[in-house]
């Protein structure tokens, strides 16, 4: 398996280089572009980014392993990330988690058999006023209830 950036992303990277004092600043933007292309960051992508930014691959790997949102393993088409931190926990997160587990037949850290869903519990999403909250890929769903979870899952099928 090899990795190549799309032409559009390569253009974006070149444009971004103008905005920063050093190309080294672009490791996170490049890692994000790689993840948006392949829904994860592969070792091949790490090497391509290292070459583009004239940095040792180990430096990019060091960064990729530090940030929770970068997936180093494949995830489902829909990555459900449920906030588990205090305000959500106080406002019914447990009930929402139980319902998600039953509906998807998986526990946090697992993916559904059809590869469609991955369920993860994450730390504070900064949405405490509309708890409980989850993020599916890049989109927030707030003030969750079991009924609302059913509606959301319908749209993701």
């Amino acid at each position: 398996m090899s990795f190549v950036f799309t032409d559009e992303n390569l253009k974006k990277i070149e444009a971004l280089k103008e905005r920063y004092p050093s190309p080294k600043a672009l490791s996170l933007p490049c890692l994000w572009m790689a993840q948006h292309q392949e829904s994860m960051v592969s070792m091949e992508a790490v090497e391509v980014i290292a070459e583009l930014l004239d940095t040792p691959p180990m430096e990019i790997y060091r960064v990729a392993t530090f940030y929770t949102m970068l997936n180093l393993e494949p995830v489902g088409k829909y990555h459900i990330q449920l906030c588990k931190t205090l305000s959500c926990a106080l406002c019914g997160k447990a009930e929402v988690l139980k319902h998600l587990q039953e509906r998807l037949d998986i526990v946090p850290g697992e993916s559904s058999a059809d590869g469609k869903f991955t369920l993860t519990q994450v730390e504070c999403l900064g949405s405490c006023g509309t708890a409980p909250v989850m993020q599916v890929n890049d989109v927030y769903y707030e003030e969750l209830t079991p009924e609302k979870i059913d509606e959301i899952l319908e749209t993701l099928r």
Partner: peptide, 9 residues
């Protein structure tokens, strides 16, 4: 320029 973090408090 917006710089996007990646989940590190």
């Amino acid at each position: 320029t917006i710089h996007r973090g990646a989940g590190a408090y």
